[in-house]
């Protein structure tokens, strides 16, 4: 991706970029989502995760003023989410829907020209060039969008979303269906936008993507299940554990681990593998090593167990199936 600045540095903003209080949306009897509350600060990349049908896209559409909420309230880019503020909010934000939604008979540049005019950007030609350079499509600006691959169309949609230098950028599954190289390019672009201070609301199924890019994540399954930094969620959901492997099984592991300060419990996981629940990994690991060596055990390894964001997600969305919680 090109390193040219994409958006002016937005400087210090007062208050949250998004503030959502008890928001809900129903379609007749069907609840899309309800009682959703969170705040997103300016400059933050906020991941919005959830299974299919959880209400992620509906939430984005609501915050983007495309759908009216049936309950709750919100402010978007500093403006209350009310019918009267629709156009003003849309002027401050940008939404990249899951499907690029390009005019396939028109060229890349013609597509962007239309949206530059709709956003009322000044010096549209310059802005279009800048957005196209940012997504490495400047050489293909005269091609019809119908001739581009899915990945390139996604990039055009991203360039379109960047045209207006939005305060809040909603990206709905931006890497859906992209190959690894195109995915990496989109990730680099998002990272670049973060450096410029753009607030990004990212909905995704890709947990690795959320873990890599997002400052905080929220997991939605009709209601908001959890919210926090990935590390914080791991700590909340999973006990800190040390995995001890020895060459042969310990003679009396119960006595060995019971005497160790900071070990809350243990279990054997294989013939010579022990899982210790600990309160402070950094304090217990050296002490356990010393105790094991002193007891004459041949220690192969002592590792802190790592839980991925996928573990967190599965634990929250389907705890009965995973059984990974503490």
């Amino acid at each position: 991706m090109n390193s040219e600045p994409l958006a002016p540095n937005l400087g210090e903003k007062v208050g949250p970029a998004l503030s959502v209080m008890g928001l809900g949306k129903r379609f007749g009897d069907r609840v899309a989502y309800h009682d959703v509350s969170f705040e997103v600060e300016y400059g933050e990349i906020f991941g919005f995760l959830g299974p299919n049908g959880a209400g992620k896209t509906t939430t984005v559409r609501t915050l983007g003023t495309l759908l009216a909420p049936t309950s709750g309230s919100a402010t978007v880019a500093g403006l209350p989410l009310t019918p009267g503020n629709g156009a003003a909010i849309r002027r401050r934000i940008s939404i990249m829907p899951e499907s690029p939604g390009l005019y396939l008979r028109l060229s890349v540049r013609e597509n962007l020209q239309c949206f530059a005019d709709l956003y009322g950007v000044t010096a549209p030609a310059v802005r279009i060039d800048r957005a196209l350079r940012a997504v490495n499509l400047i050489d293909r600006s005269r091609e019809a969008c119908g001739q581009l691959s899915k990945g390139l169309r996604q990039r055009v949609a991203l360039a379109r979303a960047l045209l207006s230098d939005p305060e809040v950028l909603f990206l709905d599954e931006p890497t859906s269906g992209l190959d690894p190289v195109a995915t990496r390019d989109v990730h680099e672009l998002i990272t670049e936008l973060r450096k410029r201070g753009v607030t990004i609301f990212l909905t995704t199924h890709r947990l690795d993507e959320a873990e890599r890019l997002c400052d905080r994540i929220a997991i939605l399954n009709t209601t908001l299940r959890t919210i926090g930094r990935p590390n914080q969620l791991r700590e909340q959901l999973f006990a800190k554990t040390l995995i001890v492997k020895t060459l042969v099984a310990l003679a009396d592991p119960d006595r060995m681990f019971a005497d160790l300060a900071g070990v809350d419990g243990w279990c054997q996981n294989g013939p010579a593998t022990y899982v210790l629940a600990v309160s402070d990994v950094r304090a217990v690991a050296p002490a356990a090593t010393r105790a094991l060596v002193a007891a004459g055990a041949d220690v192969l390894s002592i590792n802190q167990s790592q839980h991925s964001l996928a573990d967190v997600y599965l634990e929250i969305i389907d705890p009965n199936q995973t059984g990974r919680g503490r």
């Binding site: 983007g64 003003a88 940008s94 829907p97 005019y103 709709l118």
Partner: peptide, 10 residues
């Protein structure tokens, strides 16, 4: 699929 992007503009 072009209606939604247009409606997200002002």
């Amino acid at each position: 699929g072009t209606l939604e992007p247009v409606l997200t503009t002002p």
